[in-house]
């Protein structure tokens, strides 16, 4: 049994002259939840589709679930659950019919029991006769998770599963993901939400098709070398856009009545803050948040692209 559920190197994919995924390498240990972050259009969806065999890579090699991922795509498909970004079950069929279809197409035995168990597990049993199209966003997402896990896959790929879902439903969804991971399921999930990223064991940050940061949330924050100050006081939020343009400041964003100012060089950052170190403003150094780090990563990558 391979300890790595996913171990893929040098993944590349182009559509025409758009190079969407560039030399991405991913290693995910069995039973871990890995968050996949990055701005829109950065290649997250494409990477997930490459891993589950929905797209053919231009180059790349490695194993998924211990099998050569290019040669044994079909075998990998059977043991992988994939939840698409857009709801993609049949809206004109009931929950039960949708799950029965998925069970059949995977050739599962004890179909009726499995469907009922899954409906119960995700709290969908009372709604089993409803048409999938009539469900609200949170319930649709639960149904999609039910469909993606019905065949008890060893690997679960989730593409922005909680977009447009309320906080309570999101929390329940993540509790379910953690339960599944505790049972040994490996999960790769793309998301835009920082709180969700922090619930992952590991994080990968992808930008312009390149994986630019990897590790636990703490490690990524630590390795960033970022220094962040928190400014408070009446009207300081309005100073954010002025601070953002100052030398030595990489990002300055208002959070309610407060402002986060980050930079890589402590002296330069402190110098930039001098004009604002006066009453009624108060400043304190805080650990950078994951969001501060990612915004800084985005900026740095863009600078490298323009200078190289």
């Amino acid at each position: 049994m391979n300890a790595r559920a996913i171990d893929v190197r040098g993944l590349n994919k182009s559509f025409g002259d758009r190079h969407v995924v560039r030399d991405v390498s991913i290693a995910v240990d069995t039973g871990r939840i890995t968050g996949f972050l990055g701005p829109n259009g950065s290649g997250k969806t494409t990477t997930l589709r490459l891993l589950c065999g929905l797209l053919t890579p231009d180059s790349g090699e490695g194993t998924v679930l211990g099998m050569d991922f290019r040669a044994r795509g079909d075998a990998i498909k059977r043991q992988t659950g994939y939840m698409t970004q857009k709801f993609s079950l049949y809206e004109d069929m009931t929950l039960e019919e949708n799950l029965a279809f998925v069970a059949r197409v995977h050739g599962l035995d004890n179909r009726r029991e499995r469907v009922e168990d899954t409906l119960h597990r995700l709290g969908l049993f009372d709604r089993r006769q409803q048409l999938a199209g009539a469900l609200s966003g949170g319930w649709k997402q639960r149904l999609a998770l039910a469909a993606a896990t019905l065949h008890q896959p060893r690997l679960l790929l989730l593409d922005e599963p909680t977009a447009g879902v309320d906080p309570k439903a999101r929390r329940e969804f993540w509790d379910e993901i953690h339960t599944l991971a505790a049972e040994g399921l490996t999960v790769l999930v793309s998301t835009h939400y920082m709180d969700e990223a922090e619930r992952c064991h590991d994080i990968g940050y992808i930008l312009y098709g390149r994986l630019i940061a990897r590790g636990t949330a703490d490690a990524i924050i630590r390795d960033s070398g970022l220094v962040t100050f928190l400014g408070e006081g009446p009207g300081i939020d309005r100073a954010a856009h002025l601070l953002a343009r100052a030398d030595g400041v990489l990002s300055a964003s208002a959070f309610g009545a407060a402002v986060h100012v980050s930079g890589l060089k402590r002296e330069a950052l402190e110098a930039a803050l001098v004009p604002w170190r006066k009453e009624p403003f108060r400043w304190s150094e805080v650990p950078p948040s994951l969001e501060d780090v990612f915004i800084q990563l985005m900026g740095r990558e863009r600078d490298e692209r323009y200078t190289s």
């Binding site: 589950c52 065999g53 929905l54 079909d74 498909k77 059977r78 992988t80 994939y82 698409t84 857009k86 993609s88 079950l89 049949y90 998925v102 197409v105 995977h106 050739g107 469909a147």
Partner: peptide
């Protein structure tokens, strides 16, 4: 729904 269909065996 094609995406779901194709992700099945």
């Amino acid at each position: 729904t094609m995406e779901t269909l194709l992700s099945t065996p």
